[in-house]
Structure formats: C-alpha cells, structure tokens
Design a protein around this nucleic acid. Structure first.
Lengths: 216, 216
DNA sequence: GAGGCTAATGTCAGCGGCTGACGCGAAGCA
DNA sequence: TGCTTCGCGTCAGCCGCTGACATTAGCCTC
C-alpha cells in the first residue's frame, strides 16, 4: 500500500502541482457560483490562489475547462459503470442501474476534488449560463455517441448498421437531460435529491414504454 | 405599394446602412466557409468590406451572431408558418406541413440576404465547428420551447400542465436535428436535397409512430 | 551532498473578440 | 440654411488565451 507498483508514490513536486490544480479548481468554482461565470476573471481565480494567470492556463485549457472538470469525472465514471454492467441486462436496464449506481459511488470521487455541495451549485450554474449550457449540450451529444458505442458492443451490434443503440441512448439521454434540468431548477441541491428525481423519471419513462398504451 | 404605412420608404442613410450590413454578412460567411470560422478574424471581415472593426460590432453583436443571422431568419419563418397552420391539424401534422412549406418559401427570403448556396455551406460549417455546434444546439433548445408554446396554444393547453406539447416538439426536433446532421454530412448542399431528406425522415417517423408495432 | 537535469511556475509581449467614449461628417429635417 | 441625428472612424482598454524565455525548486546520479 505504501510503495507498490501501480502507485509509485508521487513525489513532492507532483503533489505540489496537484495541490495547485485543486486549489485553482476550487477557487474557480467558488467564484463562478458566487458571482457568476462571465463576471469572473481568470486573473481573479489565479490571484485567489496566489498564482500567475499563465499557471491557470497550464492546468486548464480554458476557463470553461475548469467549469466542466467535475463533469468530466462524473461522465467517465458513468461510462465505466455502464461498461461494467452484466451483459444479460437489456440496454435500458443497464443504463438505468448504472446511473443509479453511479450516483451512489461517484460522491466520494467528487469530494476528492471539490466539496459536493460546490459541484451541485456549479451544475446549476451551468444550466443557467447560456454559454455553459451550450457547451454542456454539445458535450452531452458527444457522451451519447460514446454510450451508443458501448451499448452496441454489449449487444454485438454495429452502431452504423443498427439504429437501435443510438435510439435507446437518445431516449435515455433525453430523460437524463430532463432530470438534470428539473433538478437544476429546484432548490434541493443534494445528491439524494438528484438520485430520487432520476429514479422517478426513469421509472415513469420505462413503465410508459412498457405499458400497453391502449389500456388505462 | 410605394409610400404606404408599413413601408415608410427607407431613406438614403437607412439604405446605406442596410447595404453595409449585407456586405458584412456576405463577406463573413464567405470567409467562414472558405477558410474556417475560428481562422477568420473580424478584422479580415471588416477589411473585406472596407469598414472599421467597430462597425462590424455595431451590426452584429458578436462574430457568432453573423454566423447565425440566416438561421434566425429561417427559424422565425418556420415559427410563423407553424402558427399559421389551420387549427384542425394535429400538432405533428401541422409541424410536418409547416417545415415542408417553409422550405418552399424561405428560399427567396434567404436569397435576399445571401446566396442560398452560401447559406448551405454555412450550415455545414455550423455542424462541423464545435463552438458553433454548441451554440446551435442551445438555440435549438430555445426554439423547442417556443414551438412547444405555439403548439400548446393551438391545442388550448397549458405548457406547464400538460407534457404533451413539449414531448411532441421534442420528438419532432429530434427528427429535424437528425435530418440536419445527415444533410450537413452529405454532399448534396441544395434546398431540394434537404427538403427530400426532411420529408423522408418525417414520413418514416410518423408512420413508425402510427403503425402497429406488433405486426410486420 | 554537489553537480547537473528537468519540470512547474513567473514574466512579458502580443493576438483576437469585444466595449465605451468621443469626434466627424453626411443624411435628414425645419 | 442651419440645426439635429445618426452611422461611422478612432482610440484606449479589458479579457481570454498563447508562445518564448527566464527562474527556481524538486530530483537524480555520482
């Protein structure tokens, strides 16, 4: 556990670097959420961490990059979880379980970067800031593509031949976007809250798909 | 027709202004499509029209604004057309007819701004430029909201009470986004081509919705 | 543990998008 | 004709972002 193979005990330099990165991220999100994204200057962020502006851009490719850093983590976490679902599950079921699972386990991973509550506020900010929302939507489209390929592979399908993987993912993503929006608009900025909303929407969605629409 | 109420015969100054605006738009799109959006400088655009950079920003709130000016026209044209459909038509049918109608009539309106073919190339550019695509998707979401309200009003529904308007519009928009993408990826950059693709996709979509899925 | 090597940061100069302030000259109007 | 308006040019400046070079502090080897 101390000096093993996959953990080559990062040296002081690496740790310092990581610390700077973390502090920059925290300061950025704190400033973004407290005074607005557009209103926050990269100079302000760097100054808050006592670092030059250039250093900020060495750690984050852009101001937006900082805003979406935690999302990166969450999304890759989700993709990994989906990939790990047993092959027997139907695609929608796998994604449903994966997203609920993910919300249970991703918390501590987030917490290692920034306080969970800070991320929740950041997400609300993304939903309410036009330029960030635009990027968020494009990123979601990218994620859909990745998911479609994962699902296609699970089912042994060619994503360019069979439209169903993309369709399932599109429907699922639609529901997820809806929940994200609904949650972002509300006041319950907690993980439990988003888990609940997600579960509720997915349940309704799936039962609506499965039910006989021509009966009650 | 000459000096009527809604057309107060624009004076020389107004015409000059309009001319400058048109030239700027054309030059911008021409440069965007020929050398790329990010690679084009506002200075280049202004210089091509022999005006100061400041003048560009007096006519366009941003570089992006120029890229989406024609889209603005098309979208408002489409919304107007939908609003004008007879109330008897079902929502999906109204939107289907509106979009096909719109493609027939919007051509000359576009042509009044820029050559049609230039707009077609611009659309393809939007689809293939990340930052523009992001904005495009956010704009589509805004348009969905507007459409949902139009549909809700047609049907005498409250858009915040009944989810169906938003659902229908979401499904319709999904199909439209798909056609836009497919068309943008292809080589047939003509209005006829996009009209054909649109009609084909909508037909398949509607029949898929209407058909009995449990029979061949 | 003294040397050189390297990686993280600071500094500086500069580009491109965008804005406010001010002045000018031409179009509109009395 | 003279006054007003308004479209435009100019200038200065902020902010996001980048390349180039200097500096220093961790590290690595002898």
């Amino acid at each position: 556990m101390t000096t093993e193979f996959p953990a080559p005990a990062p040296g002081l330099r690496a740790r310092k670097k990581q610390r700077t990165r973390d502090e920059l991220l925290r300061a950025a999100l704190e400033l973004f959420t407290s005074q607005g994204y557009e209103e926050t200057t990269v100079d302000e962020i760097s100054e808050a961490v006592q670092v030059s502006q250039r250093t900020f851009f060495r750690h984050f490719s852009s101001k937006e990059d900082a805003a979406f850093r935690v999302q990166d983590l969450i999304e890759s976490h989700f993709v990994t979880t989906v990939s790990g679902r047993p092959p027997g599950e139907a695609p929608l079921e796998a994604m449903r379980r994966a997203v609920l699972d993910a919300w249970n386990t991703v918390g501590e991973a987030i917490e290692a970067l920034v306080p969970l509550e800070l991320h929740m506020r950041t997400y609300q900010l993304i939903e309410s800031t036009p330029s960030l929302l635009a990027t968020h939507m494009r990123r979601s489209a990218d994620l859909e593509e990745v998911l479609a390929r994962v699902i296609a592979e699970r089912e042994g399908l060619d994503v360019d031949e069979d439209p169903r993987p993309r369709l399932v993912v599109a429907a699922f993503s639609g529901v997820m976007r809806m929940t994200g929006r609904r949650w972002g608009a509300g006041n319950e900025a907690t993980v439990e809250s988003i888990r609940e909303i997600t579960a509720a929407y997915l349940d309704r969605f799936e039962s609506a798909l499965a039910a006989d629409w021509h009966r009650g």
